[in-house]
Structure formats: C-alpha cells, structure tokens
Design a protein around this nucleic acid. Structure first.
Ligand SMILES: [Zn+2]
Ligand SMILES: [Zn+2]
Ligand SMILES: [Zn+2]
Ligand SMILES: [Zn+2]
Lengths: 152, 152
DNA sequence: GTTGACATTGAAGCGGCTACAGGGTTCCAA
DNA sequence: TTGGAACCCTGTAGCCGCTTCAATGTCAAC
C-alpha cells in the first residue's frame, strides 16, 4: 500500500519528531505500520489546511491525551482561519493592482515605451517620496525603538 | 533621508546582485545616492506585488535596455496575475474547509470529544484510503516516472 | 552477472529575509 | 570628559517545509 507521500518528506517528519521511527526490516528498510500511516495521513491532511508543523505537533499531542481540554485545538483552527482570510484580502488587493498594471501595455513595444515598466517606476517613485514624508513626520515624537533604516 | 527599508534587507539585495555596491565614506559606511534609492524603491514596489527577486532582476535589466522588446515584462505580469488568482482560489477553498471545521466544536470539551479533532482524524483516514485506491488504479498503466512513495 | 530500480544516510540548497555575534563609529548629554 | 545609546560594519547561522544530491547498499529480473 502506497502512502502517496514523498519518501524524503516522511523522513523529514521523522527527523522533526512528528513521526516515530518505524521498525526496520533485516536489511534496514523502514517498515511502516498502520499506526504510522494513520499518523502520516493526519499530518498531510493538516498540512493541506496549511497548518505549520509546530501546530500539527500540538494536535498530535492532544490526540494522545484524550482527557485534556480542547481549547488549543479550537483556537488553533480559529487563528488559522483568520490568517487565511487576511491572506485572501491581501491577495485580492494584489490581483487588482496586477490587472490594472497589465492593462498598461497592449502588445509589442520597446522597454522604453512599455506602460507597465513605466508605471512600476513611477509608482515606486511616488511611494519612496511618501515614505520619506512619513519618516519626517515620525522623526520628531519618537527617537527610540524601531529597526534601523537606510540613510542617503 | 530614510528609505524605509531594513538595512539587512538592503545588504541582502546587494549580495544577491540586485543593488550595486554603493560608494563608501571614509569610515566605511555605505553612501547611497539617488540612483540607488530609486532602484531600491523599484525593488520594494515589485516585492509588494510579490514578484520573486529573480523576476525583478529581469525587470531591472530591461529598464537599462530601453530598445529591447517588452514581451518579457508583459508575460511576467500576466503570469504573476495568474499565480495570484490560483492562490486566491485555493485559499478560498481552504477558508471553506476551515470554517466548516471550526463549527464542529462549540465551546470547552475534552480532546476525546472535540468535533474538530474528530473530523481531522476521519477526514485524513478517508483521504488515505482514497490515495491507496488511486495508486492501485495508477499502478497498472504506468510503471516508470513519478517520485517514489512509501510502502507499508 | 549485469543492469536497473528500489532503499539507506547525511548534507546542502531553495527564497527572502531575520537575527545574532563581535566589533567600530558617531553623537549628545551629564 | 566620559560614557552610553544608537547607529554602522562583516560574517555567519537560522527560519520553514521540503527537495535534491552524492555516495552507498540491496534486491529482483533478464
Ligand atoms: Zn486532506
Ligand atoms: Zn510592454
Ligand atoms: Zn508599492
Ligand atoms: Zn474542541
């Protein structure tokens, strides 16, 4: 029975402590049992939900502690959902920008005449001016904290 | 004038060949000129569009070759747009799954009784059975190609 | 007996930063 | 004057979740 998962990925999980080391055959080959495959399937399903391995690890832990409270599980799903929603919003904004950008050049042109390149350059320029303004505004009240930026 | 960009990031771009090494002052400090800052702003704007550095590199190259054709630029934006749309679709599917999942557990429970954990386990199980089926079906026609999977 | 497809290990690479260690410099206030 | 905060430098390692590679071992088929 094939698990449908790349071998290297499985060994990565093993190293990462998500899967217990399986028994070995006489020749040293790994011998996966039903338990391993169930656990692996669980991990892959959670990964398909884009949960990071650390959180999956926590879920596995709770699976083996039936009496524990499930608050962590619920919060984890909730926060993942929130993450996904935020990501969708930002990707939608991106989509808008990109499709506007695309419409700036119709067909074959030289780089010099390409509306896309042009727009990228001028938008970047606008932003850099805006940033400089922000920084001037922020400079007076706050002298400490924040990461270092570059000087020119 | 601050560029609004983390210093380490800038030096990373320098190492990666996206920004030319700036002139140095007597004390060895980097001295950024207007050209550098424009270029940096361009890079940051493109990164905000989630373009990978390699593609940005290509755009910068074309910026310095005004007579070149802009096909690459147009294709690049198009393919990025496509990428973003695909990502949005898959994230929306994810959102659905996660919000269905969330509704499986209302309030404080033990891990054993948590509908979320339950659903994760059974969904994973269903899928692993399905995968096994796929693999059985695929085993006959194709013997070569494909990456190795795990045996149990 | 030789080929070829499997398995094993450990290490390195991907992208795009981010964080640190271990120094030097600059500036301002007490 | 001195001391400390806040910047700069170089170089290296870490993050995530794999993926790829190199070198070697094992097994079945022809
Ligand atoms: Zn799944
Ligand atoms: Zn164009
Ligand atoms: Zn921008
Ligand atoms: Zn619950």
């Amino acid at each position: 029975m094939a698990a449908g998962v790349d071998v290297e990925t499985i060994r990565y999980y093993e190293k990462a402590g998500l899967l217990p080391s399986p028994a070995r055959r006489a020749n040293g080959y790994r011998d996966y049992g039903g338990k391993h495959l169930e656990r692996l399937a669980f991990i892959r399903h959670c990964r398909a939900l884009d949960l990071p391995l650390a959180k999956i690890s926590r879920l596995l832990e709770l699976l083996s502690q039936p009496a524990a409270a499930c608050d962590d599980v619920d919060r984890l799903v909730e926060s993942q959902l929130e993450r996904v929603r935020i990501r969708i919003r930002s990707l939608r904004a991106l989509e808008k920008q990109l499709s506007a950008l695309r419409s700036r050049c119709a067909g074959p042109q030289t780089a010099a005449a390409c509306g896309i390149l042009h727009e990228l350059v001028t938008a970047a320029h606008r932003e850099s001016v805006a940033h400089a303004g922000e920084d001037r505004a922020a400079a007076a009240p706050v002298t400490r904290g924040g990461r270092r930026k570059v000087q020119a």
